[in-house]
Nucleic acid binder design. Structure first.
Lengths: 142, 142
DNA sequence: TAAACCGATTGCAAAATGCAAGCACTAGGG
DNA sequence: CCCTAGTGCTTGCATTTTGCAATCGGTTTA
């Protein structure tokens, strides 16, 4: 990873990593879509280009936001997993979603059926992150 | 604003608007930097290009995330202000900051001196947003 | 065996970004 | 009055990134 960043501001430092149209969509797929393989992400609704997907996965690996391991079911297949650093992006995604529900034409199938209070929301996020840790942070073949 | 978006997913719909390296930095400047004028934002630490700043401000206006009014102190000068829709981006910026404090080399001058509990954090955000409403949502000359 | 699948890579066109200079003013100071 | 600095952009061009579609050398499936 190149060491240059635009400033020491935390917002800027975050955007240096994921300030583009695609990176957080990949994290979303891993986090909420149960997608773990290249082709699964390639076929998401947003139609990412193959070279962009490859490029971003490479960057996410270099940043240690994800890891990749071989898949025992197929010699060529790899499994991508979130690290703790990746899982920690969940509140950002949730706040983006929250904003979009309010101000953007969110598709019906994405609308939540209940509304949570602020504190409930935090503990739900904690539950989600715990679940993600169980799925993504386990060792292969364990 | 063009009506096409990549999908109905809330994350994707948010990133359609602010999924780039610059847009949320402009919002940051308005929100936390007390910057209200083009040249002030042009001189932020990250050195945005003038054509990119103009382009993003135009987009933010079209999206009604900001408004602009003339400045009574100078015929050419305009004042940019956040709308409620813009102010509602605060939690996203805060979560990005929170992630960066943990995983990125945040500059010393940006490090907070206290740590807040989750609930305190929410009420502090509410206070911030209330302050922003007072500054940004007032009518000119009122 | 043929077809589908695997994670990429490639060549090229289109779009976006970055750099630096410029525009037509407006305000302030000498 | 003149000059300088400031105002919010715009412009021309070079570079970089993104998007599109095809391809690669395998591996697995029916």
């Amino acid at each position: 990873m190149n060491e240059k960043y635009r400033s020491g501001c935390p917002v800027s430092l975050g955007l240096d990593i994921f300030g583009d149209k695609w990176t957080l969509l990949i994290v979303r797929d891993l986090m909420f879509g149960g997608k773990r393989h290249y082709r699964e992400m390639l076929h998401s609704d947003e139609h990412i280009a193959s070279n962009i997907l490859a490029d971003r996965l490479k960057m996410l690996l270099e940043e240690e936001i994800i890891t990749k391991t071989e898949d025992p079911s197929h010699m060529q297949k790899v499994v991508y997993s979130l690290t703790e650093k990746g899982i920690a992006l969940l509140p950002i995604l949730m706040q983006i979603s929250h904003w979009s529900y309010k101000y953007r034409p969110v598709g019906e199938q994405f609308v939540p059926t209940t509304t949570l209070s602020a504190q409930d929301e935090f503990s739900t996020w904690d539950n989600w992150m715990e679940k993600l840790r169980k799925v993504h942070l386990v060792q292969p073949n364990s």
